[in-house]
Structure formats: C-alpha cells, structure tokens
Amino acid sequence: MVTKKSRGRRVTKSQGVNPVAKERAGNGPPDEYADLVRLAAAGDAEALDRLLMRAQAVAWRFSSAVCGRGNDAEDAMQEALLKTYRYVGRLREPEAFRSWLYRTVRNACLIGRRKRAGEPARLQSLDEVLPGPEGPRPIDAAHPGKGPEALAANSGLRRRLREALRALPASYRTIVFLREMEGLSTKEVATVMGVSEDNVKTRLYRARVQLQAALGSQS
C-alpha cells in the first residue's frame, strides 16, 4: 500500500492505519513492543524493565483518560505490571502483545471501577451536535486564523477537551483514547474492544462530532 507523508503525518488510502502511531511520546511504534517481548522472553533484564514500565504507563494513561485518576490508576498499573510479567514468557506471537496489553488494561480498569461517575444519562443525538441552519462557529473565534494543531495546544481548549471526554459514554471515550491518544489502528482498536472495525469507525465518528461540538461551545 502506497503512503505519503503530509506535514509529518502519514496519509494513506488506509485500512485503518493511524497517522499518529509514530508520534506517541514514550510509547514507541507498534513493533517495538514485539522486540521488547522477544528480548524479555529471552532473559534480557533491561528489555523486561522497559516493558514493565511501558505497561504501567499505558495503564496510567488509560485509567486517567477513561476511568478517572486516583486509586484506580495505581491498581490498574499494578495489575498491568503483574499480568505482563506473567504473560511475557508465554506469548507465541510477540506482535499480538500490544493489543493484549490494551485489552488487559481496559479489563483491569473496568473491573476495578465500582460505578462509573459522570456517565451521561443518555447519548446526545447527532441532531443536537451537528450544525443547524446557521452553520458551525469556529472553535476559537478570537483567533480564527489559527490552525488545528496550534489551537489544540491552548490550555483552555485542553481543559474543555477533558470535560468533553468525561461527558462521552465510556466506550466512546475508550475508542478516542486508543485511536487518537495511543495511536492504535482501527483494527487494533476493534480487537481490544471486541467489536467490528465498522463499529469502531462509527463510534469514533460520533465521538468526534460530540467533541467538536463541546469544544466549540461557549462554556
């Protein structure tokens, strides 16, 4: 499949390839996990250390983004640590580790939560969040000429994003986390979530529509 880079991101006629996959700080490209698993399984202590630290970082990020912070995060990190340590020597396909890790972390976070705080009582209909006859307003009306990346760095926007994420249903929040923040492909997200790729794309679309509506609101 032919790809080309556009402003540092890969643009492709994709099968769910995520242009952000290479950019994740401290996460590394997908095949780096496979290399670490092979080395760790062969007795490389440094590789094992890095793998266990990575697993905990994933658990922290997931717990923070999807489940909320506090005790849940530390519990999820501990669970990720122990399961990775147990699993790494038994894995027949190191390339499958990444999906396994996110699935494990997700299960650890979801089992650990007693009741999801902030779960919206109902899902907003698209009619409520798509633009009406007057059309959509720019997200940052004060700086209409700013590009999306520059706007995204705005601290006020980040705060609104976190609020908007909390307002999403948990499954949407999970998909946004996996796809946008962690750089998993559509296929990988579908594997982690146990749903079809079309389901992932549909939920991702709905989540994005809600997020852009929330970021564009006055409050």
Binding site: V20, M53, W60, L81, P136, I139, P148, G183, R208
Partner: peptide
C-alpha cells in the same frame, strides 16, 4: 468549518495523549 473543528478536536486528543505520567507516579512504578 466542521472539518477544521473536527481536526482541532482530533489534534487536541493527540496532544493530550502525549502527556507523560507524573514523575511521582513513574517513580512508584
């Protein structure tokens, strides 16, 4: 405009994803 808004939302999510865990958290890890 919707395209730009959606791109901004996506970029904001990706920027949020690059935030490292707090140092104290990783020390405990």
């Amino acid at each position: 405009t919707m395209s730009i808004r959606m791109r901004t939302a996506i970029a904001a999510c990706r920027a949020e994803g690059t935030q490292p865990p707090p140092r104290a958290v990783m020390v405990r890890a």
